[in-house]
Design a protein around this nucleic acid. Structure first.
Lengths: 233, 233
DNA sequence: ATCGCTAATATGTGATCACAAATATTAACA
DNA sequence: TGTTAATATTTGTGATCACATATTAGCGAT
């Protein structure tokens, strides 16, 4: 048993006809987002390669890509780990998220059609279903799909990659913070957003997105506590 | 002569004690920013590796990093090229630039000291010197250094990487657009920004940054023309 | 001369190997 | 027993190799 498996295990999702490095990337990404790989824990190229039964090469590329998205950090010691962000940085990321998403939503607004709005409604139903079933992981994913679909409507969209990066940095902590809650949604901000899109009301749309993000933030209570819990290691 | 050297040649900057892949990354980045590598032209891993006299490995990693910053695009054909952005996307990027930079500047505002302001003044002088000497490349770089220094003052800063990404996407086109101008600066917005920082006036600072970026945009006249010129190939 | 097919080449991808630096382990000494 | 030096192992980095696919060149038929 040459590997020491100190860090959290990473369950693998099935692959299709995609590249190996892309598959490794998606696998790591999912495990980071779901908090499976605990923030602060170290990763090694060879370790991941062995767990996923591939050569170190695609793992290197996947980790480098994640590093440039700030999903992992490569220290000067050449050690790789999921960054442990401070409460202040956490707030800064949420602020940036609001800034980017309201901007993206407003830019996408002129491009919606009835058909696209219908698709958006379907995505919102997915979110509700997942949360109703108590599946936080699926709900979070469905929520992202809803937001992503909105911003994608802008044909000249340029900030979705950055939004995804923010999601990725926030992901693990949101997960940890949400894992102790029962009721997730008080009021459906998504419906507010859809209504604003129907009426082509940019201001209302911005307000809906902002409120939706704030609702999410309000559910994450003890950010400082999470930080302290993870800090020692 | 096995390589066909169809794309623009890439002059190399000297390396220090950094990694090879980091050196390759910086070299490519600089050449993209300066428009040396023309938007739309194809790049090959082996071609770059040969030009830089390194193995394909670090080139692969550098290109992948650039791809995740949207500085190059990897098509489904697995062909790599510097993306040719449409005038609409160009505007969207400038809009995003304003959004991110005003946000970053405002967040950095509380952290300035007299000493840092002095450093900022020195950086502004560098910009003026470069433009006075007619060196567009150096001026552009100095200008970026000025902006970067401002945003770096925020200890919880999270959006500088995204700003850098926008700069990188805009870079080649700004260069092409600027290459035909004589007078580059009408009024020094940097001094306005410094004054706003001294007075800790967030609103004035935002206005200064916004104006600075708009001034830069106004100098790029025929974006559509540039796009058409580059489109055929 | 132009179109279509086949062979040759180029290219990205992934694996294996070699090496240097950093970390962990062990041994020796006070 | 605690501290330091020497050794061993781990790990990231870069190079080379093998392979599948995409592109291009070459060539023959219409």
């Amino acid at each position: 048993m040459p590997a020491k498996t100190t860090y959290s295990l990473s369950p693998i999702e099935k692959s299709d006809s995609q590249n190996v490095n892309e598959w490794v990337y998606q696998t790591l990404r999912k495990n980071i987002m779901s908090g499976e790989i605990c923030p602060g824990s170290a990763l090694t190229i060879r370790g991941v390669a062995e767990k996923l039964d591939v050569s170190p090469m695609p793992v290197r590329e996947a980790l480098r890509k994640l590093a440039s998205e700030a999903a992992v950090e490569i220290k000067d010691n050449r050690r790789i780990s999921v960054p442990l962000i401070s409460p202040e940085k956490f707030k800064a990321l949420f602020s940036l998220r609001t800034l980017l998403e309201t901007h993206a939503a407003e830019n996408a607004l002129p491009y919606f059609t009835d058909e696209k709005i219908a698709e958006l409604e379907a995505l919102d139903n997915d979110v509700d279903d997942a949360y109703a079933a108590g599946d936080i992981a699926a709900g979070s994913l469905a929520n992202q799909a809803f937001h992503r679909f909105m911003y994608e409507q802008d044909p000249n969209q340029v900030c979705l990659p950055m939004i995804e990066s923010v999601w990725l940095q926030l992901g693990p902590f949101v997960r940890i913070g949400l894992s102790k809650l029962e009721s997730y949604y008080d009021y459906d901000r998504h419906q507010e957003a859809i209504q604003a899109i129907r009426e082509v009301d940019a201001f209302a749309l911005r307000r809906a997105i902002e409120s939706d993000i704030l609702d999410g933030l309000s559910m994450i209570r003890n950010v400082d506590q999470i930080y302290e819990d993870l800090k020692p290691k």
